[in-house]
Design a protein around this nucleic acid. Structure first.
Lengths: 325, 325
DNA sequence: AAAAATAATAACAACGTTGTTATTATTATA
DNA sequence: TATAATAATAACAACGTTGTTATTATTTTT
C-alpha cells in the first residue's frame, strides 16, 4: 500500500496535519519546513489518496463523461480536446461506456463533481443524480439539465444561404434523414428552412444516405450521377461523408469548384489531407470543448446556467465554392 | 449531498452498523430487519459512497483502462466487450485518455484495483504503480507486467501456410511495415517466417500501405493492378484494409476467390455487411476480452501470472480462398 | 524582563464506510 | 426459575485526508 501523509510526518518529524498543510501550500507552515516536507513527499513517491480526500472535502476534482457508444467514434476528437481543457483547469476526466443510468450511478458513487453526457440520437430520460449534469446535444427545452447545442440547424442554413447568394439554384444535401437521430434531423431542418425561405426559387434536394461513413458519401454521388440529377452545389452533413463525396467527384472527373461546389459540415479545425481546400461550416471543435468545460465549471460552482446554450457556427469559405453560373 | 447509511439507520431506528451489515447481506442481521432496511435504502435512493468504501476496504472494485489514443478507434470494440465482461464480475471500468504516466497516477489516486494498458506501437517505459498492471500488446520478456499477446505473428503465419498448402505460390501481404509499430511488425514477421520456411519456392511480396484505413487498402490494390504485380492470394493486415481491398477488387472486376484469394487478419466475430464470406485469422475479440478480464482478476488476487500470455489465433476459412491453380 | 501579540506547529474531529468487539435480548439447558 | 448459550443489535476504531481549535515557540511591546 502507498505512502500516506503520516509516513511523511514520521519521516520529517512533524505532525501529519502539518504535512497536509505543507502539501496544500498553506501559509500556516513555515517556508523551510514546507520545502523539506514537499521534497520528502516527492522522494517517498507520495500519491494523495483520492478516496480520503474527496471523502472529507466533498470535491473530487473529477468530471465524469458518459459515452456508451465509443464504437461510433463520433465524439473521440471532442473528448480528447475536452480532456485537455479540463486538465488545464486541474480536473481529471473519467469516462464510462456503460449505459447512461449505470454510468451515472457509478459516477455518483465516485463523487465526480459533474457529469457530461452526449445526446446520441434519441433524447434521454431524466434521472436523478447528486451532481450537476451537462449535455452536449440538441436543445429542446424540456431537459432538466443544461444542453450545449452546436446549432447544427443554423450551420447548415448558413451554408445553404451562402450558396444561394452565390447564385446556386440547385442545391443538394447529403446526409441522414431518419428523424430518429435528432442531431441529423436538426441539420436537415436547417437545409429545408434555408431553401423554403429563399426569396428566389431554389430546388433543394435531400440525398438520403444509409450511414455516415465515407463510403456512404461516395455511393450517394455515384447514384446521383447515374440518375443525372447532380445539383450545382452540395452541402454535406459530415466530415466522413465529404471524404467519400470528394473521392466520387474525383473518379467522375468532376472538378471543384468548376463543375460543382461543396460545403461540408465539420467541427474539425482544418481538413488536412484533403485534396482541395474545403469550405466548411460548424462550431470549431476547440470552441465546443471550451464551452463544455465552461459549462461544467459553472455547473459545479452552482452558477445558474441557461437550459440551452447555443454555440455559434462558423462559415469558412475557401476554394470549394464558386459563383454560379 | 446524498443519503448515507446513517440516514437510513435513523429512519429505520437501528444503528448504522446494522445498516451496513444489512446492505452487505450479512448473516448477522435478522432477516426481517434486513429486508426492511434494504427496502428503505432503495426507497431513499441510497448510493454507497465509493470513497468511504474504498478508503476502509482497500478495494474499489474498479479497473482503470489507459487509452490515450481513443481517436484511433482500434480498441473501441475490445474495450466495449471488456467492459461487459468486467461488469459481470461486478467490476466497474473507468477509462482515462491521458498519457500513460498521468493516467496511472490518476488511477493510483483512485485506488483502482488493477490497470490495463494498451501497447500502441512503441513499447512502454516501466513506471511505478501501487496496483497490478496488465498490458495488451506484444510479449517481449522485459516488461515488469504481464503482457497478453494476441500472437499476431502466429496468426499471419497460419494464414500464409494455409494459402501455401492450397497451392498458392505468389502471396502478398498488405499492411504496415514501419517497424516502429510493434503490433504491425509482428504480423510482418509472421508473413516472412511462413514464406521463408516454406518447403516449396514461394514468392512473398510485402505491400506497404501508408495507413491502416479502408482507403489505404483500396489504394494498395489499385497500385498493384497498375504495376501488373497481382499475386494469386493476399493476406490483409487489418479489417479496414480488407474493406478497401475488396472494394478495389470489385471495381477491377476481380472475383473472389476465382481470380484472387484473400485472408484477413481480424478479431471481430463475424464480418457482417461484407460482400463475400471472408476468411479470417486472429483471436476472436470475445476471447481477448475474456482473457484480459481473467488476467486482471488474477493480478488482483495476486496470483502469480506468467509474464507473457499468448492467445491462440483461429483460422476461419470460408469462401474467399480457393485451391490454386 | 515580564506581558502581550503573533507565528508555527500539534491535536482533534469529521467525512461514510467496514470489521471487530461489547452489549442487550432471546432462547435453551439444568 | 436461574443460568448458560446464542442470536441480534449497538458501539467503536480505523481508513487517509482536511479544516478548526488548542498548544507551544518566537517575536514584539512596554
Amino acid at each position: 500500500m502507498g505512502v500516506t501523509i503520516k509516513d511523511i510526518a514520521k519521516s520529517a518529524g512533524v505532525s501529519y496535519s502539518t504535512v497536509s498543510k505543507a502539501l496544500r501550500d498553506s501559509p500556516l507552515v513555515k517556508e523551510p519546513t514546507k520545502k523539506r516536507i514537499i521534497e520528502l513527499a516527492e522522494q517517498l513517491g507520495y500519491q494523495p489518496n483520492a478516496a480520503a480526500r474527496s471523502l472529507v472535502s466533498k470535491r473530487s476534482h473529477t468530471i465524469g463523461v458518459v459515452w456508451p457508444t465509443i464504437e461510433r467514434a463520433a465524439h473521440a476528437a471532442l473528448v480528447t480536446r475536452l480532456n485537455k481543457q479540463l486538465e488545464q483547469l486541474s480536473y481529471t476526466t473519467l469516462i464510462s461506456i456503460n449505459e447512461l443510468e449505470d454510468a451515472v450511478k457509478t459516477f455518483n458513487r465516485y463523487q465526480v463533481d459533474a457529469i457530461l453526457t452526449f445526446e446520441e440520437g434519441t433524447s434521454q430520460t431524466d434521472l436523478d443524480t447528486l451532481v450537476p449534469m451537462v449535455t452536449y446535444g440538441i436543445a429542446s427545452g424540456n431537459t432538466p439539465y443544461p444542453v450545449i447545442d452546436a446549432n447544427r440547424h443554423k450551420a447548415i442554413k448558413a451554408a445553404v444561404e451562402h450558396l444561394i447568394k452565390m447564385g446556386h439554384r440547385h442545391i443538394g444535401y447529403v446526409g441522414d434523414m431518419q428523424d430518429k437521430d435528432r442531431l441529423q434531423a436538426d441539420k436537415v431542418s436547417g437545409f429545408q428552412s434555408a431553401v423554403s425561405s429563399a426569396s428566389l426559387p431554389v430546388t433543394g434536394r435531400l440525398i438520403q444516405v444509409s450511414g455516415l461513413e465515407q463510403y456512404d458519401g461516395y455511393a450517394a454521388v455515384k447514384n446521383m450521377v447515374q440518375q443525372h440529377e447532380l445539383p450545382t452545389a452540395i452541402v454535406s452533413g459530415s466530415h466522413d461523408l465529404t471524404k467519400g463525396i470528394l473521392r466520387a467527384f474525383h473518379e467522375q472527373d468532376l472538378r471543384i469548384p468548376e463543375d460543382i461546389s461543396i460545403i461540408s459540415y465539420d467541427n474539425l479545425p482544418q481538413n488536412e489531407g484533403m485534396e482541395v481546400s474545403l469550405s466548411t461550416v460548424g462550431v470549431p471543435l476547440d470552441t465546443v470543448a471550451e464551452k463544455l468545460a465552461e459549462a461544467l465549471m459553472a455547473a459545479i460552482e452552482e452558477k445558474p446556467l441557461e437550459s440551452a446554450i447555443y454555440l455559434e457556427p462558423e462559415l469558412k469559405i475557401s476554394g470549394s465554392c464558386r459563383q454560379f453560373p
